[in-house]
Write a protein that binds this DNA or RNA. Sequence first.
DNA 1: GTGGATGAG
DNA 2: CGCTCATCCAC
Length: 631
Amino acid sequence: MDSPSRSNSLWKGKGKAKATDVDFEDLNPIITYRHLHSHNLSPRDPLRAIALCDSDAFYAACEQMRLGVDPAIPLVVRQWDSLIAVNYPARKFGISRMDRWDDALKKCPELKIVHVATYKEGDAEPGYWEKPDTRTHKVSLDYYRRESAKIYTMFKEGLPGAEIEKASIDEAFIDFTRPVREKLLERYPYLATVPDDAPEGIDSPLPPPPPISWDGLGVVVPIHPTADEEEQLLEDDNLTTWSDVALSIAAEMMGKVRADIHATLGYTLSAGIARNKFLAKLTASYRKPNNQSILRNYAIPDYLKPMPFQKIRFLGGKLGEALAREYDVKTCGDLLPISLEEMQRKFGEDSIWVYEILRGIDRSEVKEKSALTKSMLASKNLAEPVTKPSEGSHWIRVLAAELTLRLNDAREQSPGLWPKSIVLSIRQGWHLGRSKQAPFPFSRTVTADLIAAAGDKLWKELIGFDDSKPLPIKITHVGLSFTGIASTESGQRNIEGFFKAPDSMKIEERGTKRKSSATTEECAESTAITASRIVKDLDPGASSPTYFDCGRCGKRMSLPDDICDAEVGDDIKKQALAVLHTAHEDFHLALDLSRMPEEGTKTVKFRPDPPKKKKVRRSEPGGIARFLVKK
DNA sequence: GTGGATGAG
DNA sequence: CGCTCATCCAC
């Protein structure tokens, strides 16, 4: 457990040197007019103000709102036999996330238990059932995704100018720097111009900041946690900086949106506000639920030092464990004496990320994610293993139905969305897994059948299709996913240009039902090309055309003769033509996409800021390296 | 492209 | 071995 070879003094020997002096050097940087007036908001901006805002016990809150349950009632969300969300009232009973539902009920007989939505093959959409069967049903988190999207929308609308990065289904980072700066100049107009007598012109420091009232802005993390509050307040007041002013304005804005969201959607949120993402995240958990906390720069050292580093984002896993073991320590403060060189020697060049984090430094940016997701996975662990190919098809249809919903849903926001490939993965027993993927044909109208067909094909490639004899192995897990989802970001305008014919497309459904309420999605689906002409041609009463002329390539696309000649109603011919039309548009669209410069999806590193996997380049792969290097 | 690893909640 | 989801990377 301990490391006898390591001299204690090496890393505990710093004595009482003020960490503020030695390890945290940047707590009160000089802020000049240039900083304030620079239009180049960089991660080094001393007036940066970042928030992490997350929804309290989100799934539980969703169910509580959906069912109109009093928020004070203990409520949990159940998934099969365990719990996936526990609201705060329920936590008071000692119920926690991984508890079994029946154990939880023993702890709190009044507990309101809601099973997460599920669906089975053939269901149009997920539903809530008292007792869903794990053998036939699959969990759906769709409702939570939709509610999450509502919150995200309110963030965007309520915080113009702020950069917002959705970090997960229940949390988002918000960069307030720009709106805060505007407010700063508005509120303190004397900052707008460099005084004539400023010694160094635009590079002169700003005048002393005004005092701040934190009333109603949230909990302010104390600079030096002590028993004496009086003393604390006194000290804190004497140390106000412009950075604090910036944080207080951010807190103001954050508080307003939180209140707004609570009033409109009913969700309570907690937020942390600090100078960077990592600290914001850490600060958000300072006081929960339904609260926000502010971490001033001067409060960073004493907040961070006692903090178990394994609580830090990306240090919660094996890397954190490896660090803890290597040095036999727990807190951030414990790791401060480790030199950068030492850390890099053991954990690779990229450990500088960890080194800086421990000192409250994090330059990673809040960046709205262009494509909201790059992949979509629907998967299911099978309580009853699949032993026949036909059973596989069954689950594939279930999973395909979910992917259909989700992809079409995503397309409401970005019509050009398109998964490059579809992947079927299966697992047998406990670790052996295989997967197979194939290109996913672009199609404007994605149906469950289309996806299921693709999945079935992969299934056959993966395990064969002879239903007569049982599979040699038991499949315990089936997953169907889309990968390489591209949103044709830069081409958005082009594409929307195509997608703007009005209500022409419902013809596929029924020629007569013209004004059927077309959803935005369906409107977006219609394409310009020759749509208006087609609609005219399809005017009720006129005899059905059997071709159309493509406005883009000029080609005349005709129905196959056998359909033209067949003794079928006009309805059928209309439908057939619509299908042909759609297919042809898809062809053009795919062509457009392939020719389009891949701006949104080029080699931009998707996750530039988080810690790199530690590539250990080291002669001796012992010790921690074993965790980090593939065996 | 495939499989595995990592991480979050 | 909860269960479901997402991303990255070595091969």
